[in-house]
Every structure is written in structure tokens, then in C-alpha cells.
Design a protein around this nucleic acid. Structure first.
Lengths: 162, 162
DNA sequence: CTTGACTAGTTATCTTATAACATATTCCTT
DNA sequence: AAGGAATATGTTATAAGATAACTAGTCAAG
């Protein structure tokens, strides 16, 4: 599923993209004995609707409209579950969340955030992670988690601004 | 001044470290015709007191104690100035700010955040930045800004936890 | 000595996130 | 099938982070 991250910024069959990710999540949850409950499932579906990051309160509004609780912890807990099990990512720079485009695969995501259209892609980050570790090594620092995020212009928005 | 980022996690003459950074900032401000006003200067001094990131409200409290305004914009504006002109950095992952350890030099900072002691170091990020651009290139994404942050254990805290 | 740009201060509000507790559901054990 | 532990959902309340909009002071250039 989108191994090189090209999908997000390219036009594609998004219904299939979304359904595939959802099916994958179901399978993973099943395999690991995780409980993909209605709120959690719905939160993931909401994130999967677009290749953009959504704030917790955006997700909450959507959930509330559909009859789930309307208090912040409802959204935060569902999102926390999704992030914890690799179904979604937290984008620190945006204080927001996005569905993971490579669920199941171990990967260090590099987020590419388009400042014009808010599009979000996940580029493969193995090389970046390696060089980050290389930079940290000489300081004797033991890296446990990392966030690598870039802001710029996606292909479509570069074209549009010229 | 600390070209390889080793200083933050090593014991060192911090008074000299701080004074050097401050002198550097003064010189740069002078050279560029920037107004390093009392609030701004004091905010920078506060950040320079430790190799840790401080929240805007921490800085605000300190400023208020010393007779500056006690409303959030006072701190946010001073910090914004410092970040904008390269005297400080914003650490997204922590919603916090830290003095720049390489003022004046063009550099992409890689932040190493110790989860045990909250220490913060700035590792050289040229290689990481390059590989990030390499990862973004195939997607046609034009990188404008990036944040590269790692959480883990600094040398001292690794020793302490064993 | 006044005008215009910038700086600092205020009030008010908005957004993001979590703590703490009550209720309900699930599922394992017997 | 019933008891009980663990998990999940919901609530109220509040903490923490950030910005908008306006007012007033400062300062240097004309």
C-alpha cells in the first residue's frame, strides 16, 4: 500500500484507498486481538476520508454528530488508541492526527505537509532516521522516538502558484 | 560555539556558555539593526539559563516577576522575535522554546530531547536535512521548513537508569 | 515637533489537552 | 450461567497553549 508515499499527492481512486486501509486495519486488529470498537473505527474512517491531518476537535465534532459522546476525551481516547497501535499518526507540528498510510509495516514516517492545501503525505523515512541516529550518536544520545516533519508545497500547489 | 552539539549534555562552564551566546546575540542584533529590547533580551537570557526548553508561560511568569507585562502576548511576542531572527528555536514536540546554540550560523537543527531530565541538545542536521529532501524529492514536494526532533535518553540519564 | 513605524501593554477569547470520576461493556474463570 | 477483573465509554471540570483586537507609549526620520 503506497510504499513510496506518492499516493497522497497524486489523484487516485480514493474510495479504494480508504477501503483498503480500513480493511487492513480490521485485519491487523483481528490478528492482534485489538478491539476496534465503533468509536475507534469511526474515528479512523473520519481520518481516512482525506489525505489531511485533522485536529482532535474536528474529529470530535464529527463523532458527536453521529451520536457518540461530545466531550474531548472521547476523541482523544479514540485517537490515542489509533496512534498507539499504528493506525494513525500524530502530527506534532499541526497538533493534529492523520490516518497511517502504511499500517502494519514498521516504518519511521516523514510527514510532508503542504502549506497551501493542507495535504499530507508520508514519505519513507528509513534513510532519514538512520542519519538522525548518526547525528545523535556522537553525543551519546540514545534515540527512542522521533518526529520528522516538513512543511512546503505539494506538486499541485507548486504548479498553481506559478 | 559548540559546532557538534556536544556541550548541552556535557558538564561545562555554563556561565561562559550563556554569556557567549548573549554576546553573540547582541553582536548579531547590532549588525542587523534589530532591536534587542529589554523584554526580548530578558526572554533570551531566561532561555539561556539552562539547556532545556521552556514553555511560553514559564517564560511569561519569569518576565512578569521582573516587572514586565503579565499577559500571554508579552511572552509570545518576545519569543516570536527571537525565533524569527534565529536567537531561539521552537520545539514543536514540547510546545516550548529554547535558546539557539548556534546563533548566526545557518543550520538545520536536530533536537535531542532527554525524556528523563528534559535536557535539550542541538545536533548538526545538515545530513538529516539532505536525506529528508531526498525522501521528499520523488514525491515532487518542495520542502520549505522542517522540524526534526528526537526523544530519548541523554548520556547521563542512560547511566543513571542502569 | 510631528508623523509613521514599531514596541509593549491590556482584555478577551479561542484552541488544544488532560485529570478525575461514574457507568457500562466485555470477557475470562469457575 | 454468575462473579469479578479489565477494558471501554461517558461525564464534568479545568489545565495548558495560543492568538485577535485594541490602546498607549517610544523613537527616529523628515
Amino acid at each position: 500500500m503506497d510504499p513510496d508515499g506518492t499516493l497522497a499527492f497524486a489523484s487516485h481512486d480514493h474510495a479504494a484507498c480508504r477501503d483498503g486501509a480500513m480493511a487492513h486495519a480490521e485485519a491487523v486488529a483481528e490478528a492482534k486481538g485489538l478491539r476496534l470498537t465503533p468509536v475507534r473505527r469511526r474515528a479512523l474512517e473520519i481520518l481516512l476520508e482525506s489525505h489531511q491531518a485533522l485536529g482532535a476537535y474536528d474529529v470530535l465534532d464529527r463523532l458527536a454528530e453521529e451520536g457518540f459522546g461530545r466531550q474531548p476525551p472521547v476523541a482523544y481516547r479514540a485517537l490515542e488508541f489509533l496512534v498507539e497501535h499504528g493506525f494513525a499518526h500524530r502530527i506534532r507540528r499541526l497538533n493534529a492526527f492523520a490516518a497511517c498510510m502504511h499500517p502494519g509495516e514498521a516504518h519511521v514516517p516523514v510527514f510532508l505537509i503542504c502549506s497551501a492545501c493542507n495535504g499530507l503525505a508520508e514519505a519513507p523515512g528509513a534513510a532519514v532516521a538512520a542519519s538522525l541516529r548518526q547525528a545523535a550518536g556522537p553525543l551519546g544520545f540514545r534515540v527512542e522516538r522521533m518526529s520528522i516533519e516538513a512543511v512546503g508545497l505539494c506538486p499541485a500547489c507548486q504548479g498553481a502558484s506559478e
